[in-house]
């Protein structure tokens, strides 16, 4: 009972230390730099150009200032694959 509990304790400690080491390594390598920019990964460029009917005037102006003018809607009835 004691030896096996020692093994488990040891294994967990090593695992924990490895995790900490991996985290520190990642930190030093800059994996966490400019982290909020990574939020943009889900977005496609044209997501920002689509006018949304619920936007307030101010919200719309803000979006257009940041991402350019609103795109024309695509042809009605066209759906697949995009947007």
């Amino acid at each position: 009972m004691l030896p096996s509990s020692l093994t488990v304790t040891l294994a967990i400690t090593i695992l924990g230390l490895l995790t900490v080491a991996a985290f520190l390594w990642a930190w030093r390598k800059g994996q966490f730099d400019r982290i909020n920019d990574q939020a943009m990964l889900a977005m496609d460029d044209d997501d920002f150009n689509v006018a949304r009917p619920w936007e307030t005037v101010a919200q719309r102006a803000e979006r257009v200032a940041a991402h350019g003018p609103t795109q024309l809607p695509a042809v009605p009835g066209i759906w697949g694959g995009a947007r």
Binding site: D45, D46, Q71, A74, V75, I78, G80, G81, A82, R83
Partner: peptide
């Protein structure tokens, strides 16, 4: 493999590259 509309759509959107990825 997509509907014929899709082909049409590619020409009506300015941001072709982005669209192409999603397609």
């Amino acid at each position: 493999t997509l509907s014929p509309h899709v082909v049409e759509l590619t020409t009506s959107i300015t941001d072709l590259e982005n669209l192409d990825i999603r397609l």
